[in-house]
Every structure is written in C-alpha cells, then in structure tokens.
C-alpha cells in the first residue's frame, strides 16, 4: 500500500470529485429542501456522455480539444436530464408532503439507471484509452514527498478548484446567484418580489447537473470505465460529503467532499482494508449525524420544533 503522501494525493483527487457532486445535492437541498436521489445518476450519465462522445467523434481531434468538447457534450446531456427531472418528476410535487418528492426521486433514480442499462448494455463502458493514456502516465507525474501526482490527478484538482471558485463567485455576485440565495431562504417572498421561481430552480438543477457531468467525465477517465451502477455509490458518498459539510451550505459541500476523500484514502492507507473503504465513509456519516448533525459548517437540520 503506497506511501502516506500517495494516499493524500489519491484522497484529494477523489475528494474533489465528491465535492463537485455534493454541490448538486446541497444546492437542490438548499432551495427545495429535498434530497435529489437521482443526482448520482446524473453524474453517471455525464460519464457515459463523455466516453460516448470521444468514441464517436473524438477520432480526428487533438486530445485536449476532444476532451474539452467531450466535457461540454456531457454537460449538455447531464443538464438536459437534470432539467427534465426537475420539470417532470419534482415540479409537480413541489407542494406535496415531504415524502412524495423523495419517493419520486428514488423512482427516477431507478428509472434513469435502468434506462442507461437498457441503452448502454450490461458491461462497463471503457473510456477510450487513447485520450487518457498520457494523462494517467505516472512517469509524467510530479513527485511529491515520495508520492506521484499524475497529470490527470493534477487536472482533476485544478479543474474542480476552478469550478468551485467559479460557482462561489456566481452565487455571491451574479443576479441569478443572488436570486438563488433569496429563493433558498424564502421561496414565497422571492416569488412576491418578482423572481421567476421556476427558472431559478431549473437553473439550480442545471448547474448541479453540469458540475456532476464534469465529475463524471473526470472520474471515468481516471478509473478508465463507466458503468450504469456507478452513480449510486458515488451519489451516496457525495451525499455523505454534503451532510458532512452541512447540507444546504455550498462551502460546506466543498469542505465535506475533500475531507471525505481524504478520510477514505487515509483510512485505507492506515488499515490496509480496501474492501471496507465504503464502510468508512458510511461510518463518517453516522458519526457526523451523531455528534454534529448540522455538519461542519451547516445550520440546524433537526426538525423544527
């Protein structure tokens, strides 16, 4: 089992991805107060879209351009799915009792998974090797304290960081970002001042889906395949990250994601029990709920009394 610094590098890479996905959970939660169970599937669909794009149209293009276009394509595909989800599965239930949108979300999660399964087949889809071989070459990586940061890992960390900075600036300073914060706080009043609530919520889903799509492409390049079941576990982890940081809280999701990635990698490094990796993150979720249910940066999550 590699060195400590390798574990930190791997954990940080994974943590960045968790953070990107967690943002989608936390933004939707912030604005609608519901867990979008199907968000993991949006991430998975993004991975498929990227790999499919490269397989079909990547041939004649140079690697950076092909990858860039693949990311854009997967953003488009995932956003359409995310927006469709909001429009058809959640919007009709916006004022229903809390359980209804959750059950609808679970149903959609299953349906999306199956629909990918039916159209994409029973075997994991490989990420075209040609486009990733240079990026994952450890020889080309940077040596850091005895570990190696592969170019792709570096890219994942840089892209994720840029996206998170971009999102923070957007939410803080843009008109739509402010409207999102206003809607998250008081949806009814936001409507009364003339904010088009439906547009704000749709935008939230699109942004969350776009971030998940980028994560999906990066991870499928990183681990070389994408499979229709991948979204479920990634979704569970990312949700844990969102709760860890404090659900509904955007910086919280970022911190929670990175910490969760590090905890997992270091847990495996320290115990050598890679089979139990997923149990670590669940253990984190339980411990967080036990001792700090509002998360590291979050607000009260216990039912109002």
């Amino acid at each position: 089992m590699g060195t400590l610094s390798q574990a930190v590098i791997n954990g940080l890479t994974l943590g960045m991805v968790y953070a990107l996905i967690a943002l989608g959970y936390t933004m939707v939660y912030g604005i609608l107060g519901m867990i979008n169970f199907a968000h993991g599937e949006i991430y998975m669909i993004g991975g498929y879209a990227g790999a499919t794009f490269l397989g079909l149209w990547g041939g004649g293009l140079s690697v950076p351009i092909a990858l860039g276009l693949a990311v854009l394509f997967s953003i488009l595909v995932s956003s359409l799915h995310g927006a469709g989800l909001e429009r058809f599965a959640y919007r009709p239930l916006r004022n229903a009792p809390a359980l209804a949108p959750l059950i609808s979300a679970i149903g959609m999660s299953i349906a999306l998974q199956q629909y990918v399964f039916l159209t994409q087949g029973t075997t994991p889809k490989p990420f075209p090797q040609f486009f990733r071989q240079d990026l994952v070459a450890y020889e080309a990586g940077i040596k850091l304290f005895g570990g190696t940061l592969s170019p792709l890992q570096g890219l994942i960390i840089i892209i994720s960081t840029l996206l998170m900075i971009g999102l923070s600036l957007f939410v803080r300073h843009s008109k739509m970002g402010k409207a999102m914060r206003a809607t998250a706080e008081d949806r009814r009043m936001a409507g009364l001042v003339g904010i088009d609530i439906n547009r704000v919520i749709l935008t939230t889903f699109v942004i969350g889906s776009a971030l998940a799509a980028v994560a999906g492409v990066m991870v499928s390049a990183y681990i070389s395949t994408i499979f229709y079941r991948d979204g479920y576990l990634a979704g569970l982890k990312a949700f844990t990250a969102a709760v860890f940081g404090g659900i509904g809280n955007i910086p919280g999701a970022m911190v929670g994601g990175v910490l969760l990635g590090l905890i997992e990698a270091l847990g495996v490094w320290a115990t050598g029990a890679s089979d139990w990796k997923d149990v670590f993150s669940f253990g984190v979720l339980i411990l967080v709920l036990l001792f700090k249910p509002r998360g590291l940066l979050g607000e009260v999550v216990a039912e109002k009394v």
């Binding site: 867990i35 359980l99 844990t240 149990v279 216990a302 039912e303």
Partner: peptide
C-alpha cells in the same frame, strides 16, 4: 442517533445501513 433528525436523513442513513450490512 438518527430518528430525531429530518425524515430524509433517515432515508440516506438506512440506505447506507443496507449497504454496510451487505458489505459485512
């Protein structure tokens, strides 16, 4: 630890619990 929290937390915790049981 979880039942006093919001309902949707319970959903996720039991989901994770199902996974952990299967891992074990």
């Amino acid at each position: 630890p979880t039942i006093r929290l919001r309902g949707d937390y319970l959903a996720i915790v039991t989901l994770g619990f199902g996974e952990v049981i299967r891992y074990v």
